[in-house]
Simulated scan of single mutants.
Amino acid sequence: MTTRPPLVFIVDDDQDIRTSLTRALGQRGYEVEAYASAASFLDAYDGTRAACLVLDYGMPGMNGLELQQELNRRNWPLAVVFITGHGGVPESVQAMKGGAVDFLEKPFRQSDLLDRIATAYQMASARMADTASQDALRERFARLTDREAEVVNHVLANPAEVSSKEIGGALGISPRTVDHHRARILEKIGVKSLVELVRLAATLQDDGPLRP
């Protein structure tokens, strides 16, 4: 299978910037897509590939910071490098707080931008891999029945009460039934112990209690 080249998006309302960066990055082996506005970029990108986004701060309509906020909301596998001709300290601070790799003022050295793009693409790829791992884990927990999910939630909420007798007493079922559920849970999640189960389930706690 052929490996696709690293993807870089350029979103800038300056045609000359789009043209020069597209040419320079293409010569260095990047796959490049350029857009004149945030809206046109959002219409084209679906979040299925990791990418670096070279983003102009000062654009008409939705500006760069507003686009960054929208992308963070969508949790897409992108890392942003801002470029700007008139951004100040408050804007750069806000961009960095939003997770931007850097905030470069025009004119910038091409070598500086290339360094930031390489870093950004690595970050985006790592983010996509982490998201894929979390999605796969959610799918494994989604195989649990309602009762099995209850058992897991009890263990997470009461780490000092993990014996079959304690779990059974809390859920109103027999210890033998708990043993059966526990074995099925470990099998479905693909772990060998409650310790491993708790470690994996804890990474999904931001989603709230587990549900099948």
Rank of each mutant, 00 (worst) to 15 (best):
E31D: 09
R49I: 01
D43K: 09
Q110F: 15
V101E: 01
R140A: 09
A36Q: 09
D146M: 10
I173Q: 06
Q205C: 01
R199E: 14
L144P: 03
V191D: 10
L144K: 03
G29Y: 04
D102N: 05
G88N: 13
D14T: 14
R49A: 00
R18M: 06
L194R: 14
L55V: 00
T48P: 00
V191C: 12
M62N: 09
A118F: 04
G168A: 15
P60Y: 12
A95N: 02
Q122G: 10
E196V: 12
V152H: 00
V191Y: 11
R127T: 07
G190A: 09
R140N: 11
A129P: 04
H180K: 15
D112I: 14
T3M: 08
G61P: 11
F103A: 03
F108W: 07
Y30R: 02
Q205M: 10
G172Y: 11
G61H: 12
P107S: 09
A132I: 14
A160I: 12
I117R: 03
L113G: 03
D115W: 12
V151L: 14
E161S: 14
A34N: 02
S92T: 09
S174K: 12
V155D: 02
G85I: 13
A124D: 01
V162P: 13
G172A: 12
R4T: 06
P107Q: 10
L25S: 05
L156K: 05
L7N: 02
I173P: 01
L42W: 04
I17W: 07
D14N: 13
F108D: 05
G85L: 12
E91K: 07
R127E: 03
A118C: 08
L65A: 04
R138Y: 05
L113Y: 03
C52E: 00
M128C: 05
E91S: 11
S125M: 11
L210A: 00
K192M: 15
D16Q: 15
E187Q: 14
V8H: 02
A39G: 09
D146C: 09
M59Q: 11
T3K: 08
R109N: 12
A149F: 04
S111I: 10
A149E: 05
R23G: 10
V198I: 13
D206R: 04
I167L: 09
Q110Y: 14
I185P: 05
P60A: 13
A79C: 02
V198W: 08
A95K: 04
H86G: 15
A124Y: 02
P90A: 07
V81P: 02
T48H: 03
G26E: 07
K165G: 13
I189T: 06
V11T: 05
P5W: 01
A136D: 09
V80K: 00
A170S: 14
M62F: 12
L137H: 08
G168Y: 12
R199F: 10
A36H: 10
A36R: 06
A160E: 13
A51Q: 00
D46R: 01
G190D: 04
L113F: 03
V11L: 06
L7W: 01
R176H: 10
Q205H: 03
Q15D: 15
E161W: 11
L137P: 06
F108G: 02
A129E: 15
D207H: 03
M96K: 09
S40V: 07
D16H: 14
E196R: 15
K192R: 15
V151F: 06
L25T: 08
A36E: 13
E105W: 10
Q69L: 12
D12P: 08
A142P: 07
